[in-house]
Simulated scan of single mutants.
Amino acid sequence: MKQRRIQKRHLLGQPLTPDEVLMLTELSRNHHYPDYRRRAMALLALNDGQCVDDIRVCLRVSDQPIYDWAKGWRDKGIFGLLIGHKGGRPPKLTDDMLDYAAEVARQQPLTRAQIAAHVRERFPDAPSFSLDRLGAGLKARGLSFKRTRLSLKKKEMSCVFDALSTR
């Protein structure tokens, strides 16, 4: 029985230009993040005619990311390849929570713990968060907190004013 040869469609849309090959080669060698290097290697292998299954085995990924990377390249070029570095858990303090905390902090002078209590009252279902994260979020919004102390000069000055007022 004669085997039918299936012609592969070009996943990248069209073959890469020499400039694109050079750019992807440099990206695969020098990018800071290993996942971007892996994406560039996959696109270069697709351009060379490698099948998705061989690339998947070589790069130790499933086949779906390779199709996603090729689609990103077809749709947006290099920008489609570089977006998507979205690792990690979602933040505990959302933008709405931080905006509310900044609003509360601007209304009256409060400590971070007091601001956190206001935020917890307003958002009771929110996960617990640390005061350091709250402080960092407020600092990013232009607010900073300094510990207030009673200086000796103020105490001395109040003693002087008290002494003058008793005369």
Rank of each mutant, 00 (worst) to 15 (best):
I115D: 03
A116S: 14
K76F: 11
R122G: 10
P109Y: 02
K76S: 15
T17Y: 00
S144Q: 03
R149I: 13
R37W: 04
Q7W: 14
F145Y: 05
G142D: 14
A105N: 09
L46A: 06
K139W: 04
P15S: 02
L82T: 12
L22Q: 08
D53N: 11
T111D: 01
W69C: 13
L134Q: 05
I55F: 09
G135W: 05
R9C: 10
R141H: 15
L24Y: 03
A42M: 08
D96A: 15
T25E: 10
S158W: 08
A40V: 00
R29L: 13
R167I: 09
D99H: 14
F123N: 03
F145Q: 11
A105V: 02
P90Q: 04
L22W: 04
K153D: 12
L150R: 15
G84Q: 08
T94Q: 06
D54W: 01
P90D: 00
R29F: 12
E156W: 03
A163T: 13
S128E: 15
R141F: 11
R112F: 11
K86Y: 15
L134E: 03
G72A: 12
A136N: 10
V160D: 12
M157C: 00
Q108I: 12
R29C: 02
L82C: 07
R4Q: 05
S151Y: 09
I6C: 10
C159M: 04
L93S: 01
P65N: 13
A42C: 10
M1K: 03
Q14W: 08
Q64W: 02
Q3A: 11
A116F: 01
D63R: 02
M23I: 06
V104F: 00
L134S: 07
W69Y: 12
G80S: 09
S151P: 03
D99A: 11
R38G: 15
G84D: 07
P127I: 03
K92A: 05
L59I: 08
I78D: 11
S158I: 14
T17A: 06
R106S: 14
T17D: 01
K76I: 09
K153S: 10
R74A: 09
R29D: 01
D132E: 04
P65C: 10
R89C: 07
N47A: 02
N30P: 11
Y33T: 13
Q7M: 14
I115A: 14
A105I: 04
W69R: 13
I115N: 07
M1E: 02
D75P: 00
F79T: 05
A113W: 02
F79Y: 15
L11W: 14
D63F: 06
P15R: 00
P15K: 12
P109Q: 12
C58P: 00
G49L: 08
W73T: 09
C51Q: 12
K2Q: 07
D99T: 12
L131Q: 14
A136H: 05
E26W: 15
A140R: 06
K76Y: 10
R133L: 04
F161H: 06
K92E: 05
D99M: 07
K155N: 01
E121Q: 05
L12H: 01
Q3G: 09
R5F: 07
R122S: 06
R133H: 01
M97H: 09
R106M: 05
R149H: 14
D35S: 15
P15N: 06
V57R: 15
H85L: 08
T94M: 13
G142N: 02
T25K: 10
K71F: 01
I55M: 00
